[in-house]
Amino acid sequence: MLKFIILAQLLITLLYLGKLGLAVILGTIAFLFLTYIWVTRHSLTRGYSKLQWEEMPWLYDGIARMANKAGIAMPYVYILDDYIPNAYSFGNSIVLSLGLFEVLDEEQILGVAAHEIGHIKNGDTILFPLMAYGRYLMLFLGAIIIVFVHTTIAVLASLGLYVLYEIERVKFLKEREFKADETALYLLDRPFSLKEALEELKYYEDLRITVRASALPGIEPNIERKQKKSFMDTHPSYDERIWKILAEIEGRAFRDTLK
């Protein structure tokens, strides 16, 4: 769906701007490609440390075992100097923040790592940057059409396509998070460790918000301190993920009993 939306935006640009449109499209794609190359080369600067086997054999071996089960090469594992628990992946690399090691036990950390391996296995580490750059392309072409094309239909169609792209992008990203969880459940020796990790991380975030809110000056009304859940959030909530994981585990157990 997303590629059809981009294609439609490209067609509108070509249709209404002709050669100028083609030059804009090619120039933007070339610029975004160079930006992508620059970002990938400079994504790991300060605060990252590449994990060596001797440092945490349980983590290194656990990730190697799961990568093997997933049929992917052993990912590079980086430890990030950040006290906030966090994890993400890019290319064939996994980043785990030091904060994770303070709040989760070994099994739960492997649960988080399994989710990131799930993203690599499912091709999300390639798809997600493409989608992000697709978004910039949509936005830039939309702006060009507004400035250079003085036809209401073209402007409205371009804006509509951008909005549609955003809605589809958010929906797609959420689906990929669930898919990474599903893959993680297959990779883990004890699937419940991912659920437990998410529960602990949810507890951490809720508590952190409470502690932050209580540290604010008292004159601020409490209602304004609550974190708002946006419909444009690209990640599903912890609760949604936990429910899906439970349903998946129960479903698997039920299927096993039928065999």
Binding site: G99, E102, V103, Y204, L207
Partner: peptide, 8 residues
């Protein structure tokens, strides 16, 4: 919980 100690 560990989270409480870490946050504090």
């Amino acid at each position: 919980r560990r989270s409480t100690v870490s946050i504090l």
